[in-house]
């Protein structure tokens, strides 16, 4: 019993210490896209052959990349970036959360959704229209862009 209490106590102290340290260390703005060039460069780390234009989210935590092979997505995850080419059937739905925000749903248990908040209504509705076309068309993922 003593050993159990000792273990619980030590782990509790450690947990609190760890949590406090993490809160203290937390710097939420360490990964942010500052420009289209930033977004493209980051996307190319995942898809080295990709070229195109980027539409940044208002908070700099995501971007839609329009490549010659179709649209791609770049999203901050922890302090890293995740990227994927967007195509049906992996992209299952696009919905508006409000006037400037979109929610993308994927048929991927390990990455089920992504949220993007744009600077204005026009950009959000343009991106939504583009992605909805993609979902409706049922076009399969492009085969000519290879993941790094």
């Amino acid at each position: 019993m003593k050993e159990l209490l000792f273990s619980i106590g030590v782990n509790l102290v450690l947990g609190v210490l760890l949590f406090a340290l993490l809160l203290w260390k937390r710097r939420p703005d360490t990964v942010r896209l500052l420009s289209e060039t930033d977004a493209l460069a980051e996307f190319q780390r995942h898809y080295p052959e990709a070229t195109g234009t980027a539409t940044l989210s208002a908070d700099g935590l995501a971007a839609l990349i329009e490549t010659a092979s179709g649209p791609g997505l770049l999203v901050a995850h922890a302090r890293r970036w995740n990227a994927r080419m967007l195509a049906a059937p992996e992209l299952t739905a696009v919905s508006a959360r409000d006037e400037t925000s979109l929610e993308l749903r994927f048929a991927d248990f390990g990455w089920p959704r992504a949220r993007l908040r744009f600077a204005d209504r026009e950009t959000a509705s343009r991106c939504r229209a583009r992605l909805e076309t993609l979902v409706r068309s049922g076009t399969a993922a492009p085969a000519d862009l290879h993941h790094a």
Binding site: V75, H77, A78, R80, N82, R84, D108, F109, G110, W111, P112, R113, A114, H147
Partner: peptide, 14 residues
């Protein structure tokens, strides 16, 4: 192909 979630159940079973 990285995960886009920190949900433990999704991490464990994806």
């Amino acid at each position: 192909k990285n995960l886009g979630t920190v949900n433990p159940i999704r991490i464990a079973l994806h």
